[in-house]
Every structure is written in structure tokens, then in C-alpha cells.
Design a protein around this nucleic acid. Structure first.
Lengths: 151, 151
DNA sequence: CTAATTTAGTTAGATGTCTAATATTATATC
DNA sequence: GATATAATATTAGACATCTAACTAAATTAG
């Protein structure tokens, strides 16, 4: 056992993100980053979402989400609207141009998945997900319990 | 198969890095980040290294490595010296204060490894490393071949 | 030997992300 | 019902990282 899983995870993450960013650029979406894709993913799935929901889904802080949505709005892919239910809330939704990205988004996603899973057989792929899930679940539990101790 | 390995890898990486940063802070090393640990790791192993070697080892660009070493130098943990062999080169080495970090570095590393591998049995840990290695090797090969096409 | 190219390192500028602080509105407590 | 607390979002400021451009020195080609 080499105990180098952490380094491997870091490198896989870095290469995946770089590939994604390059693909976005090649698809005419220069300036977009993987996090923008996470924001779009929730909008594709739900139609619209509050900043809070987007932040939780993308695993980013609220300030970061503000910036992400600012850019998508400036690029014309989403729009903000004050929530009718809660005057504090902002509802983000796709514009037609944003909706039109769905195909590109799905194509790039599928190709990334293929790329990552390519060297693994079917059973290996399943095992890979199972082990990653176990490790992540444990880290999240630990993180939560430590945070709890402080409060 | 859920094909969510990429998300899982990203989250594990994020939580590992956050834990590391918090531990460094708790160990009185506020302001240091995991990359500084990578720089120190090579110095602990080799005694000294050029900027180029440090950048390659830490998987960071040269400008980033300049900044990393700037900070470690300012904190008093490393020093720069012009190389006697090559006037372009800078040799970075540990100060006594830097050398004294070795224990803390190893303790934090060990605890992170324990944390990540905790939910896995021995065989699972081996499998985990094997699968991560396969996936990374493939991504690196692909990345290299694509880069080759451009040049 | 000179000129062109490559290599080592830094500087400059941009960007994605974070934490802390702020404004505004909703909810809970007394 | 007034006041305190919590929640939503943004702004401000910091920082790690990147790419591009630069300087200086070594190497290679002619």
C-alpha cells in the first residue's frame, strides 16, 4: 500500500478540470469554467433555482455563486428575477441562449465520463464509485462532527 | 453505474485540502496551504532543489512556485541561493526553522492518510489505489497525446 | 565564433475562490 | 406587536493559481 490516494485524487481532479475548461473553450465558451457547468446543470434539471440552491448544488459559497451567476448573466445564458414568495430571494432561470447550451453541456459531460472510465472495466467502474463514495461519506461525516465541536 | 466518479473525486479533493489547510492553521502555520507542503516534502527528501524541480514535483507552474517559495522564504523556512553550476538556476534549501517543520509535516500527512483510508479495509485500500492509478495514467496519456497534436 | 534557440526564473495581470462584513427581509421570542 | 435572531444575497478584500511577457544565461547550429 503506497498511501498515495490523496495525490492521485488531486491529479485526477486537476486534469479533469483542465480538460473541461479546454473543451468549453473549444466549444466557443471561453471564460467558462466547470463551476458554471454545475450552475447550468441544476437549471437544466429544475428550470430555475435560488442563489442559495445553486450554491449548495455547486458546492460553492454564496459570494462565489454570485460571481458565477453574474458571469452567466453577462454572457446572456441566465437571468435573475426577484422571488415573488420571499423578497430576500433571487430566482435564476435560463434564457433561450442558456437553454440552447444543453446539448453542448451534455456532450462534454458524456465525453468526460467516457474519458475517466475508459481504462476501467464495468465491474471496476462500479467498484471505483463504491470506494470513492465510502471515502467521501466518511470525510463528510468527520468534517461535520468536527465543525459541531466548535459550535 | 452512476458515472459520478468525477464529482466524487472533486469533493474528496476539496475536503482533503480544506482539512489540510485547517490543520496547518491549527499547528500555528496559518497562511500555509497544501502546495507549500509539497515544496517542503521535496526539500525534506532531497535537502535542496531548484525552482524547476520544485515546480515539477508540486505540479505547479513556475510562476506559482516562485510565489510559494517567496512565502516560505518570508516565513523563514527556506532560503534561496544562486546555483554554482548554472547561473540561471536558484537552489532552494531548508533553514533550521524549516527543518524543524519535518515532524509536524509528517504528523499531518499521516493523519490525513488515516482519515482517507479509514473507511476502507486493507484489500479495498489496495484496490482503490490501483483504480485511481489506472484512471490517472490514462488521463495523463490522453492529455499528452492531445498536446502533441497541437505542436 | 556568432547567431538562434532553449532553459531558468521572475514579474505583471487576470481570474476563481474564500472569509468577513453589510443590507435587507423573514421568523421567533417575549 | 416590538425586538432579537436567522436567512438571502451582495460587496469588499485577500489569496492561490494561471498564462503571457520579460530577462538572463546556456546550448546548439551554421
Amino acid at each position: 500500500m503506497e498511501h498515495n490516494a490523496i495525490m492521485l485524487v488531486g491529479r485526477i481532479n486537476a486534469l479533469s478540470n483542465r480538460w473541461l475548461t479546454d473543451e468549453l473553450s473549444a466549444a466557443g465558451l471561453a471564460g467558462m469554467v466547470p463551476s458554471h457547468g454545475d450552475v447550468l446543470a441544476l437549471l437544466f434539471a429544475k428550470g430555475n433555482a435560488t442563489m442559495h440552491e445553486l450554491a449548495a448544488f455547486a458546492h460553492r459559497t454564496k459570494p462565489t455563486t454570485t460571481v458565477l451567476v453574474d458571469k452567466l448573466e453577462k454572457l446572456g445564458f441566465v437571468r435573475r428575477k426577484d422571488s415573488p414568495d420571499d423578497a430576500r430571494s433571487v430566482v435564476v432561470s435560463l434564457t433561450p441562449a442558456g437553454e440552447a447550451l444543453r446539448g453542448k453541456y451534455e456532450s462534454i459531460s458524456r465525453r468526460l465520463v467516457r474519458r475517466v472510465y475508459a481504462p476501467l472495466g464495468k465491474a471496476e467502474g462500479e467498484t471505483f464509485e463504491t470506494l470513492l463514495t465510502k471515502v467521501l461519506a466518511n470525510l463528510e461525516t468527520e468534517a461535520k462532527s468536527e465543525k459541531g465541536q466548535i459550535e
